[in-house]
């Protein structure tokens, strides 16, 4: 029978705004209910720090149900922790044992400058979408929704790619800090659908160019991104991006 509460040692990355170098600081998380989520465990530590007149650990989070993509940290070397297809907010403490030491660090990538503690600036991902991650349609002019039949399996395949939550774990997991999985998910989603075809060539070129300009690395098929993606996005999407990109370049 597992105990209902556990005690942990945390080593957490602390770095003030504008500070050149951060450091790992040690905290003790006591009487953590195993039913808590990882973020609730940090809440407890923060509450404790506050009571001791110390500044709590800054970390991004919002929906706490695994869909907004706001949270994320590297936990013991794994992005969003070690559970498969799980965001940090959906990682529960029953997957840890009493007495464990947990190292918590921010996403690390040149394209994600650190803001404070575990918070990084992921606006580069928005910039990539701005470069072409849309279908150019204004409100008001659309034909009837059923005017264009799209085979069920095509819609389903597009949906699988569209499930990306933009958390940036793929970048953090990649040894090259490449954003290929993120970019390919959006390219695939839109290229698979007939509505997205007219702009497909322009889109893939613009998005890949923007990815390079933002300082992300190149893809060398390490496949770490696929393993760590909390939404199970597959590198099949990268293959599809490559085909789209080549088609665009040679036409």
């Amino acid at each position: 029978m597992i105990s209902k509460t556990i005690n942990l040692t945390l080593k957490v990355w602390r770095q003030n705004r504008g500070e050149k170098k951060g450091r790992l600081e040690t905290y003790h998380a006591k009487d953590i209910s195993v039913d808590m989520s990882f973020l609730e465990m940090i809440d407890v530590v923060n509450e404790d720090l506050t009571k001791n007149r110390k500044e709590p650990i800054a970390f991004d989070h919002d929906c706490r149900e695994g869909i907004c993509g706001m949270c994320g940290a590297v936990v013991n070397g794994r992005t969003h922790g070690h559970e498969k297809e799980t965001t940090l907010c959906q990682l529960h403490m029953r997957h840890f044992s009493d007495g464990d030491t947990i190292v918590i660090e921010p996403w690390r990538s040149r394209a994600f400058p650190l803001i404070k503690d575990l918070i990084v600036d992921r606006s580069a991902l928005d910039k990539i979408i701005q470069a072409g991650g849309y279908i150019s349609v204004n409100a008001g002019g659309a034909p009837d929704a059923n005017a264009l039949p799209i085979a069920g399996e095509v819609a389903e395949t597009a949906f699988i790619a569209a499930a990306c939550i933009g958390c940036g774990a793929c970048v953090a997991a990649c040894p090259n800090a490449s954003a290929m999985l993120f970019v390919s998910a959006k390219v695939s989603h839109l290229a698979l659908l007939p509505q997205g075809r007219p702009e497909a060539a322009k889109r893939v070129q613009a998005m890949v160019r923007q990815m390079d300009e933002c300082g992300f690395g190149n893809c060398s098929n390490e496949t770490e991104c696929e393993v760590e993606c909390p939404k199970g996005i597959s590198i099949v999407e990268i293959a599809r991006l490559n085909r789209e990109f080549l088609k665009a370049e040679f036409s």
Binding site: Y134, I135, V137, A139, G140, G141, A142, P143, D144, A145, L148, P149, I150, A151, G152, A155, E156, A158, F159, A162, H189, L190, L193, Q195, G196
Partner: peptide, 13 residues
């Protein structure tokens, strides 16, 4: 619904 389909929302079909 018309507009969202035109935007590429992958609704169930």
């Amino acid at each position: 619904i018309d507009h969202c389909v035109a935007q590429g929302i992958p609704f169930a079909r």
